[in-house]
Amino acid sequence: MADFFHMGGYAIYVWSSYGLALLILVGLLAASLGTLRRKERMLRSLEQTLPRRRRAVAGDGEGKP
């Protein structure tokens, strides 16, 4: 097991690489999920404040003004 962590003397290089990969991939995923949650919450609260008639026109899913 110690051999495994030692990586033939290159531990610092190998484990830094895998650590950075974890950091970047998890970081980007968490940031993306966070933004999505926030936007969807905002969209729901906006839709509730708008009358139904308007919502049918604006929220047609085209996303264009």
Binding site: S32, L36, K39, E40, L43, R54, G59, G63, P65
Partner: peptide, 22 residues
């Protein structure tokens, strides 16, 4: 991840549209 981000961007565009109507 790109699907998640595209969904967020589409939601953002809807928000902009709704704000304009409002």
């Amino acid at each position: 991840t790109v699907i998640l981000r595209m969904r967020a961007e589409l939601a953002e565009r809807k928000i902009q549209t709704l704000r304009l109507t409002q």
